[in-house]
Nucleic acid binder design. Structure first.
Lengths: 244, 244
DNA sequence: CGGCGAGGTTGATCTGTGTCAAATCTCGCG
DNA sequence: CGCGAGATTTGACACAGATCAACCTCGCCG
């Protein structure tokens, strides 16, 4: 490797989609091996974001999509009247920044909830290379559409579930995502505060706190601070199916 | 025109994006004139959907995106436990079916709330032609992303507004969309029932009904059945800004 | 042209969450 | 290693919106 190489280029070197453990959830997921080298060029740089810092903020010009290599983020929206809404929590292998594609500005902010590493992928490159690699193009569409489906799921949660069901859904969703990444599905750290959970679920932090206590009393979970252990996954699922 | 031409082809003949009044909100929006002929080929057929019928249903295989030429639709989701959630209302010039792009199945249903006409655009063609016409490709991305942004707006509504604010937001949103289409922003027909409004806004139909009455009493609107006339738009906006 | 059924309104009451408040815990930092 | 700010828990109480119920309205079909 040449000395004097730019930082971005150095960082880029460290990254190869081919070897990335998270490839299948990422943009290069379905890209066949022979196109992979081309596709790797869309990873322009890696960025390290410290806990509490913004990867991007509402109003920023849109340039990149970001793939989370390690870490945890929340995205949130603030309307003109100052109402804040957490719109999602994102973990390794997931993509951030897709909503900026609409009109060249990021409508939301993404804040790291722990020290995190991301791959920055300029949209201009994705677009350009996508034209030559249909599987990449398709994957991008698919990822955008899945985000829409996810959002509709949250609308269902907010629009037709009671507090208990919302929190159960939230825990089960996190559990499933951790499992898919090879972490324990039963025990994990909540990276976010009760208030952030509340904002996401359309509840107040006190309600979230009470529900955690109640779930513990009912034997569904053990909770100590931010560490959750789901003792009875089936029970939580049943709670959703109950529909009193 | 040849006799014996297939129905689909006949229908197709009637459609030219170049002359379509709704082009700018549709997929061909930014496509330059010289590429338009190519892009028009993605409109495979027109379909007429009667009030109450489904354009597509949850579980259907995904093939097409649909542009609404005339009419009005709701989309809705039903979860395993039978909870139903209306996820959106769509009017002429808007696109339906994008959420199916994720995994080849339509996760939601789209029901016509009045007799409607749509352009069916097979995804395979959009994909293929998009590769040659970057402005189309880009437009598709943009439209998908805008849907994400819209959904986040609904999440904000459901997660942090009170009933009064939700309904005011809903009315103002409809008003704005009618205006952009050249219809009256002040007076329009609600195509959906109180129950469907309620589902969309996370409220019960009784609450929706009461709020309409209250808004009328407070001089914001006149309402007779499904006909709304917004008497005081600024007042409704102020109601949102108030944040008691 | 009359009756039926779906949709809508309104009232009374109930209840799940919000609100407010106070005590406790935790963790980063000097 | 202790301090202070922010986070969490818990309790008491209030209230927005749900629920239940009765009645109304209107379009439509026989």
């Amino acid at each position: 490797m040449r000395p004097g190489m730019s930082t971005a280029a150095q960082l880029k070197r460290e990254v190869t989609c081919a070897k990335c453990r998270l490839r299948e959830t990422c943009l290069s997921g379905d890209v066949p091996a022979e196109d992979l080298e081309r596709v790797e060029n869309i990873v322009y740089a890696r960025r390290r974001i410290r806990r509490g810092e913004a990867l991007f903020s509402a109003g920023d010009p849109f340039r990149c999509l970001y793939a989370i290599r390690t870490g945890f983020f929340k995205t949130s929206l603030v309307d003109r009247e100052g109402r804040e809404q957490v719109t999602g929590f994102f973990m390794s292998g997931e993509l951030l920044g897709m909503d900026g594609l609409g009109d060249g500005r990021c409508p939301a902010s993404a804040i790291a909830l722990e020290d995190s590493d991301v791959c920055a992928m300029p949209y201009s490159l994705i677009e350009y290379i996508g034209r030559e690699v249909p599987s990449l193009q398709r994957r991008l569409h698919s990822v955008l559409a899945r985000e829409i489906v996810r959002d509709h799921g949250v609308m269902l949660l907010l629009g037709s579930m009671c507090a208990e069901e919302r929190l159960a859904t939230f825990l089960l969703n996190l559990s499933k995502r951790f499992r898919r990444r090879g972490y324990s599905e039963a025990e994990f750290h909540l990276r976010m505060t009760r208030e952030e959970i509340g904002s996401y679920l359309g509840l107040k932090l006190e309600t979230v706190s009470r529900l955690f206590s109640q779930f513990q009393k009912d034997g569904y979970i053990k909770i100590a601070q931010k560490l959750v252990r789901i003792v009875n996954i089936a029970g939580l699922e049943l709670l959703l199916a109950a529909r009193n």
